[in-house]
């Protein structure tokens, strides 16, 4: 097994992420133990970062979280009634508009049909009289 592969398996072994098949392969490798000890010695030499956050960190975090919560609450307190009122107004206005404008086109259409019918009747009578005037026989217009 290549050294790089052994090291990869040893790293996985350290974190407990080694499969049983990989473990068997590692155990069968003659140089694995030496590399394991070397890696272990190296890891033990890596210094721990012994540094702590400010003693006021928790107080500051708590204060920021309180502030965030307060701003969310105040936002909803202010804007909720505004949004609600706006929604109500929109609903009222749209309903009002709908009731006002819908009968108008129908009335116009009925009126237009009425005018058109009266004119058509007049034209028809005029046409009938003209045909009668130019015809030799006094036939009924319907027989023509």
């Amino acid at each position: 097994m290549k050294i790089r592969k052994i090291e990869k398996l040893l790293l996985l072994e350290q974190t407990g992420e080694l499969s049983s098949r990989q473990r068997r392969a590692l155990n069968a490798c003659p140089v694995a133990q030496a590399k394991r000890d070397e890696l272990k010695a190296f890891c033990a030499s890596v210094p721990a970062i012994d540094i702590e956050p400010s003693p006021w960190a928790v107080t500051k975090i708590a204060a920021r979280l309180r502030e965030e919560r307060r701003s969310v609450v105040s936002f909803s307190k202010v804007w909720k009634p505004v949004f609600l009122t706006a929604a109500c107004l929109t609903l009222v206005v749209s309903t009002f508009d709908f009731n006002q404008t819908s009968p108008a086109p129908v009335a116009v259409a009925v009126a237009e049909v009425g005018v058109w019918s009266a004119q058509f009747e007049e034209d028809l009578v005029e046409l009938e009289s003209l045909i009668l005037a130019i015809s030799d026989s006094s036939l009924d217009i319907m027989e023509m």
């Binding site: 030496a34 590399k35 394991r36 000890d37 070397e38 890696l39 010695a41 190296f42 030499s45």
Partner: peptide, 10 residues
């Protein structure tokens, strides 16, 4: 330094 660690490994 790593040579020393390798010695530890042996």
């Amino acid at each position: 330094e790593y040579a020393e660690l390798q010695e530890v490994g042996r």
